[in-house]
Nucleic acid binder design. Structure first.
Length: 854
RNA sequence: GCGCCCGUGGCGAAACUGGUAGACGCAAGAGACUUAAAAUCUCUCGACCUUUGGUCGUGCCGGUUCGAUCCCGGCCGGGCGCACCA
């Protein structure tokens, strides 16, 4: 009996697949198409277990669909632009391109060892000019369609590194790298008009029924549609108008003041001759960087001394404040405040001692005695203190007020979104250059298509702060494409989320001159199954949806939604270990003693086991995929990742778990290598009459085909695994008599084929051991003989008052009366009915007999 | 604060979303084989009791039902998302 050598066997079959180019996709195939895609990785240099899980899940789907007759597209690429490459350049003096391509080479080797059924000929890297040049084309398309614009916008500016920081790079108001206090600066930035599609993106969510409800909800909240009333206040002192937006026009009679944003033009205007206001505005800007700071900041205001007339009563004037909690880029940047119905307004009113008039009366409260304390009431109720609205339901009053304002001409129904336009400018080197030129005479001019791609210069230095593109001696100097005069290139590069917003389209026709071939893309998109982490629930998935719609809008595709099915997999966790010095310890260094205590193999210190947490380098609770594959092989790692936990849930990696998977790998190998019973030759016909044990095995075989197929289709891989364990147990049972060799061959072949999407190398090895010259990867999925999946008899539970008393086995379609008679004949049942009177008997055929008695 | 999701043995989980709770695996225990170990194989494995049987048991309390892990209401615990969006 030989032992399974995973390492050698896996390398052997990977070579065979590679040489046969078996996973190559024919884009123009007439077979039904299936596009399965996992979120492409950032080339950090090494794959981690999260990658292995992600790509294994996708690979099972890809191999399963292939076996079921689909032309499968399953590509791989690299999300290769971004900051870490520049950090490496600064820290280690390696060029970002070299660093990135080295990492890609490493990770490609690692991924290939996992044995993925990928068409590697379609591989792409977003940092390749052949990719980002097409992205520039798309960007110009969008510009021509009015979806790209420049705007002065507030950014987080690091004065030491001379760069713009993303919100998450600002920690406690300081730059994450330099530690310098971050300033708010106004810079001219490039924006994509995602808000043009806000309504569509929201509406489109409804049809995405193969997306997790959770993700759809998160996107819905992110888009944040609200409906309300926009109207103009008239400023009493100047006669100027001040537009405001409200979702609660029903609370207009509860108004107590009006507030404008510190960034509001009116505030700036007033500040010119009010130094203390200018100071107040400056103050607000300083605190306004991180979201956490915003949350904690108390409500503060500046009384401008101005007043506005109430729109429903010109004799009523409201004071105008500049308030730190009013956002300039939502609505109109100005609000009317009803403290009784809004917590922020209430906090503000209490602080500045402004009136608080309750206007919505909650159910069960008395209008005469109802007051607002420190909590605003935002729920439903009846209107009070609101003149002509008194007694109305608040919801109805809102609708009525909007209609009335429109009818009387002083306001209009307005829809607002929380979603902002997408700022894509990054003042960095390692990204897609924004393909525009600044000309003194012509302004901002797109680079003509024939001059694309605008490539990054290679000779850059990172020893100065700021954007290397900006201080490159020659790169930015060019000629205006329009007038030919001296001009300057745009030195901003694009947010890397742009790169990942269309890669799934490029994969379909990776060699197209255009960004992609629209006709073929229309055939392949949407992606049938997209798989990735929940952390991309909003940004990446929303941007990709926007890009797809925008590309549709500019006429490049007919596709509107990129991903038909989305699956978000859980994280890979591991126990944490600490030694007596308080240092985190890698799991591979932990040794167990007989009494259950643990110590470090390198220095002997005692080790204690801590919480199970997401694998992370900082806590050292990681296992290296290379080590695992080296020791157990990729199949065993794949099998373990698919067993036990449902794929959407977190998975805890354990030593005993991978050991268990390894035992199963060996066991299946032995089952075929040294079968427990004789097996018939390849292709031998099943005899017409077979023994009971052979029939039992055949039934197990065909039931397993049905079960495993359904489980894989539903992505319930853990259930498929459980079923395969059960099936392996059935195949190990004693079998003899007529038909036994044929049933055993059928069983072993079926076992191998059902395992093959999960353990592809083992499957190939055993398939060849079973005498086949073909590849499992080129073999059809087994088909169940449904006649063998149904039993003649069925086990039914017999209950008294809902409690199990006995089980009976009866013919499958026996009538209710007969079933009842058999149940009643049970001794066990009669014993438990002793002394009781039967009131009613419920028979559910095939399931249960329940006797109601007392 | 608002919204959403989840609570089942020592552990990961399953139960065809109203019909025999705990399949399958891990861990543990007992035994066989072995000079011994590893590997392998067999058996036990929710709790309790007066153990050929019985009672309880799916976070807690209640409801609907012949029957509830599943449906409804209220708590408790854990997780995630959003958060001055007017």
């Amino acid at each position: 009996m030989s032992r399974y050598n995973a390492k050698a066997t896996e390398a052997k079959w990977q070579k065979v697949w590679n040489e046969a180019n078996i996973f190559k996709t024919d884009s123009t195939s007439t077979k039904p198409k299936y596009y399965v895609l996992e979120m492409f990785p950032y080339p950090s240099g090494r794959i981690h277990m999260g990658h292995v899980r992600n790509y294994t899940l996708g690979d099972v789907v890809a191999r399963f669909r292939r076996a079921n007759g689909f032309e499968v597209l399953h590509p791989m690429g690299w999300d290769a632009f971004g900051m870490p490459a520049e950090n490496a350049a600064m820290e280690r003096k390696v060029h970002p391109a070299d660093w990135t391509y080295d990492n890609i080479a490493n990770m490609r080797d690692q991924l290939k060892q996992v044995g993925l059924a990928i068409d590697w000929e379609r591989e792409l890297a977003t940092c390749d000019p052949a990719y980002y040049g097409k992205e520039q084309q798309i960007f110009i398309d969008f510009y021509n369609a009015g979806l790209v614009y420049r705007k002065e916008s507030w950014v987080n500016w690091d004065p030491v590194d001379n760069t713009v920081l993303a919100n998450e790079q600002v920690i406690d108001g300081r730059g994450w790298r330099s530690g310098a206090v971050v300033e708010r600066r106004k810079l001219s930035q490039w924006f994509l008009k995602i808000t043009d599609f806000a309504d569509e993106l929201l509406e489109g969510l409804k049809a995405l029924d193969r997306w997790p409800e959770k993700v759809r909800l998160m996107q819905e909240n992110w888009i944040g549609r609200s409906e309300g009333l926009k109207f103009n206040f008239e400023i009493a002192e100047t006669g100027a108008t001040l537009p405001v937006y409200t979702t609660r026009p029903d609370t207009l009679f509860g108004a107590s003041f009006c507030a404008i944003s510190p960034d509001h033009p009116l505030a700036a205007e007033l500040a010119t001759d009010k130094p203390d206001l200018a100071e107040f505005i400056e103050d607000c800007r300083k605190t306004g960087t991180s979201e956490e700071a915003l949350e904690k900041a108390e409500k503060r205001g500046y009384d401008t001394g101005l007043h506005v007339y109430h729109p429903l009563d010109k004799s009523w004037k409201l004071p105008v404040y500049v308030a730190n909690f009013v956002l300039m880029d939502y609505g109109t940047g100005a609000i009317f405040a009803c403290p009784a119905g809004d917590q922020r307004d209430l906090d503000f009113a209490r602080k500045y001692d402004l009136p608080v008039i309750p206007v919505v009366l909650p159910e069960g409260e008395d209008a005469a005695s109802y007051t607002i304390g420190t909590e605003a009431y935002t729920g439903p109720g009846k209107m009070i203190n609101s003149r002509f609205m008194d007694g109305m339901d608040a919801m109805a009053a809102k609708a009525m007020m909007i209609d009335r304002a429109e009818a009387e001409g002083w306001g209009e129904r307005t829809v607002n979104f929380r979603l902002r336009d997408w700022g894509v400018s990054r003042q960095r080197y390692w990204g897609t250059p924004i393909p525009f030129v600044h000309c003194d005479a012509c302004g901002v001019v797109p680079v003509p298509a024939e001059q694309l791609p605008v490539t990054l210069p290679e000779d850059v230095s990172f020893d100065r702060p700021g954007n290397p593109l900006d201080h490159h001696p020659t790169w930015k100097h060019t000629k205006c494409p329009k007038c030919g005069a001296k001009a300057v290139r745009e030195t901003d590069t694009m947010d890397t989320f742009v790169d990942s917003s269309w890669y799934f389209l490029r994969f379909v026709t990776p060699d197209a001159d255009a960004p992609f071939d629209g006709d073929i893309v229309n055939e392949w998109l949407p992606v049938n199954q997209y798989i990735g982490g929940i952390e991309h629930a909003i940004l990446h998935l929303l941007y990709a949806r926007f890009f797809t719609r925008a590309l549709n809008h500019v006429g490049r595709t007919k596709v509107k939604e990129p991903f038909e099915g989305l699956f978000t997999q859980g994280m890979v966790n591991h126990a944490t270990y600490k030694d007596t010095d308080g240092q985190w310890v890698f799991p591979e260094l932990v040794r167990h003693r007989e009494d259950g205590s643990k110590f470090r193999s390198d220095n002997g210190l005692e080790v204690t086991e801590g919480r199970i947490e997401k694998m992370s380098k900082s806590k050292k609770n990681v296992v290296d995929p290379d080590d695992i594959i080296d020791q157990y092989g990729a199949d065993t790692a794949r099998w373990f990742m698919l067993s036990d936990s449902p794929p959407e849930r977190d998975l805890t990696w354990t030593e005993s778990g991978i050991e268990g998977a390894w035992r199963f790998t060996q066991r299946v190998f032995r089952m075929v290598d040294a079968p427990s019973a004789a097996i018939s030759p390849v292709g031998a016909a099943m005899p017409a009459s077979i023994s009971p044990s052979a029939l039992a095995l055949r039934k197990a075989t065909h039931k397993s085909i049905v079960g495993v197929t359904a489980d894989i289709e539903a992505l319930h891989f853990n259930k498929a695994v459980a079923r395969l364990y059960e099936y392996a147990n059935a195949v190990s049972a004693d079998i003899s008599g007529e038909g036994a060799p044929e049933a055993m061959r059928e069983a072993l072949e079926t076992l191998v084929l059902l395992l093959s999407p999960m353990m592809p190398h083992l499957a190939e090895e055993l398939w060849s051991k079973l005498g086949h010259k073909t590849l499992v990867a080129a073999t059809d999925w087994p088909k169940a003989d449904l006649a063998l999946t149904v039993d003649d008899t069925v086990k039914m539970a017999v209950q008294v008052n809902g409690k199990l008393r006995d089980t009976i086995e009866v013919a499958k379609d026996l009538g209710k009366a007969e079933v009842e008679a058999i149940a009643m004949a049970s001794d066990k049942l009669q014993r438990s009915l002793d002394g009781l009177t039967v009131r009613k008997v419920i028979v559910v055929p095939g399931r249960i007999v329940n006797i109601v008695a007392n």
